[in-house]
């Protein structure tokens, strides 16, 4: 029986079916998503140049093979309970990423909101933490099996009489370098840390409202409202019941 042409058509049709259903349909439905205005801010925000380069370092070194970047909704994992985010991740969060690096394995913790768990501030504590963690993960997380990335740092000699670089890693104990040498992060390390600081996605969106237990009782969509009682002043306006003119706002 030569059913060659029929088989050929069937072969074509079945793959076309899955292509249309799984590739084409999503592309049509949300392949043209744009940045949205979430309470006065553009979401997702544009990554500054250094953070963008950091994303390249993240991709090139395959960080996604151990770290995921997606928060699961409640009931499908303990992500929210572990403080890995205030809300589950949605498509909008990854709009600006190329490639989208969700990760499939959690040998290391989820990094979707690591920029919120360890934010950058004037004290630079978290910045130093990240550099130490990248240089030798055992310093900050004893027992971790994350590989060290010494090639993201360079060993420099501190010349006699010169001060150490402000970026030099504070290393103690067995990790200390020899006298008159210091470990300084390269631009790749800086970029990567900038990228990690940029990983934040707690802005509530239409499709991902923040569950009430994270807004301290007041339903507010103020971005970045972590655990403060950001009460809108208007909500406390009470108009006195029996007066002809309403009180001042």
């Amino acid at each position: 029986m030569n059913h060659g042409p029929l088989i050929f058509l069937g072969i074509l049709f079945t793959l076309a079916l899955s292509w249309c259903g799984l590739v084409f349909a999503p592309q049509i439905q949300f392949g043209r998503q744009e940045v949205v205005n979430a309470k006065g801010q553009l979401y997702p925000p544009n990554r500054p140049g250094l953070a963008q380069q950091g994303g390249e370092v993240y991709r090139a070194n395959g960080c996604q093979y151990c770290h995921s970047q997606q928060v699961q909704p409640k009931g499908l994992g303990a992500d929210l309970e572990r403080g890995w985010g205030k809300r589950y991740s949605v498509a909008q969060d990854y709009l600006r990423d190329v490639p989208v690096m969700w990760g499939n394995l959690r040998i290391g913790p989820d990094l979707t909101n690591v920029g919120l768990r360890r934010p950058d501030d004037e004290t630079h504590t978290n910045r130093v933490w990240h550099f130490q963690h990248l240089y030798r993960p055992q310093i900050t997380s004893p027992g971790s099996i994350m590989p060290p990335y010494p090639f993201l740092f360079e060993k420099r000699q501190v010349r006699r009489g010169q001060p150490a670089s402000p970026d030099a890693l504070p290393l103690i104990g067995q990790y200390k370098t020899e006298l008159s040498y210091e470990i300084v992060p390269t631009s790749a390390a800086r970029a990567l840390v900038a990228y990690l600081f940029s990983l934040q996605s707690d802005t509530p969106l239409f499709e991902a409202p923040i569950p009430s237990e994270f807004t301290s009782g007041v339903d507010t969509n103020a971005p970045g409202a972590m655990s403060t009682n950001a009460v809108s002043p208007a909500l406390t306006n009470a108009v006195a019941p029996a007066s002809t003119s309403p009180p001042k706002q």
Binding site: A60, N61, G62, C63, Q64, Y65, C66, I107, P137, S144, I145, M146, P147, P148, Y149, P150, F151
Partner: peptide, 22 residues
């Protein structure tokens, strides 16, 4: 092996875990 001995061959960027695995 790198999952047991994270320092194994960690000096060389070409052989970091995230590149060897893919």
């Amino acid at each position: 092996l790198k999952l047991h001995f994270p320092d194994f061959l960690a000096q060389c960027p070409w052989l970091t875990y995230g590149r060897v695995r893919p």
